[in-house]
Design a protein around this nucleic acid. Structure first.
Length: 275
DNA sequence: ACGAGCGCCTGTCGGC
DNA sequence: TGCCGACAGGCGCTCG
């Protein structure tokens, strides 16, 4: 579900807090409840609960769509997948439907992992690279350059949409931001990566960073019942805009299915590139 | 190398 | 009203 901007938004409020509520830096775990067994990837439940007790949250990071909590001895990783969410609240609050894990803190608050569709996962590991080691670069990192992108696009002969969704190619893009980035770069989602010119690659590089930064600036997108306060959904150019006029040319936005994913684009502004 | 299909899950929405 | 299929922000797996 959440893509890079949504995960980054959650990371920031876990770190800094929001609406007068403090973040969770420096908080120590007392007990942990695992309400849905399969939400826990590794280790086994009893080891997980024993290891976490007494540990303190030192740093909160993000790698692609993974949320990383650095603890006194180890790392806890969250992947929210389609419907996962995290909230911080008093232990006196009533629990919600679909709460899958509850992490109680010694200060009377708790961190709750809620996940209706049960696709999300939690890991407790010594080294986060065990889980995130095969991810591609961070799109907002200086190491992600137009030259790197052009080089890698030429290496493959894949359709742009599935390639950009491939987390080992680039970490953090999901269905929404991929469609938005391709629109702003004026590239058709079915264009083969090896067909792009250096100028195309530069435009794509810029569009990817722009849509992700705008998403973060808007605190992510809130869709359907997964509401986190972000409002980037009001600024979608193509995602879920099928039939509505393109903001550039006025022609109707179209939808097609690529790699079993809903894909939205302007057929006029995003022609397939041929060499 | 690459892509299609499927499994994992629950909830919502539109059509009949 | 009730049922039923399509669809949903993701990803790992097998198979061809």
């Amino acid at each position: 579900m959440p893509e890079l901007p949504e995960v980054e938004t959650i990371r920031r409020w876990l770190q800094d807090g929001r609406q007068g509520e403090g973040g969770i830096l420096g908080c120590s775990f007392t007990t942990v409840e695992v309400l849905w067994e399969r939400s826990l990837a590794i280790p086994a439940r009893d080891v997980f609960q024993q290891c976490l007790a007494g540990q303190t949250v030192m740093q909160i990071g993000r790698r692609g769509k993974f949320l990383l909590l650095e603890l006194t001895g180890g790392w806890m990783l969250f992947h929210l997948r389609m419907s996962g969410d995290l909230r911080v609240e008093s232990q006196l609050e009533p629990t919600h439907p679909h709460d899958r894990m509850v992490f109680n803190f010694s200060d009377g608050r708790r961190l709750v992992f809620n996940d209706a569709r049960k696709f999300g996962r939690v890991w407790l590991v010594e080294d986060p690279l065990e889980i995130t080691g095969n991810l591609g670069p961070e799109p907002l990192d200086p190491a992600f350059t137009p030259h790197w992108l052009y080089d890698r696009l030429c290496t493959f002969n894949r359709r742009l949409k599935p390639l950009l969704l491939d987390q080992t190619f680039l970490a953090g893009l999901g269905n929404i931001y991929t469609d938005e980035a391709l629109f702003h770069a004026r590239l058709h989602p079915l264009t083969l990566s090896s067909m792009l010119s250096a100028a195309d690659a530069y435009g794509l590089w810029h569009a990817i960073r722009q849509v992700l930064q705008e998403g973060i600036d808007h605190h992510g997108a809130s869709i359907d019942w997964v509401y986190r306060g972000g409002d980037f959904q009001n600024y979608f150019a193509v995602y879920k805009q099928t039939g509505r006029p393109c903001q550039n040319c006025g022609k109707a936005i179209e939808r097609l299915v690529v790699g079993q994913r809903s894909t939205h684009f302007c057929p006029y502004c995003q022609p397939v590139r041929k060499k």
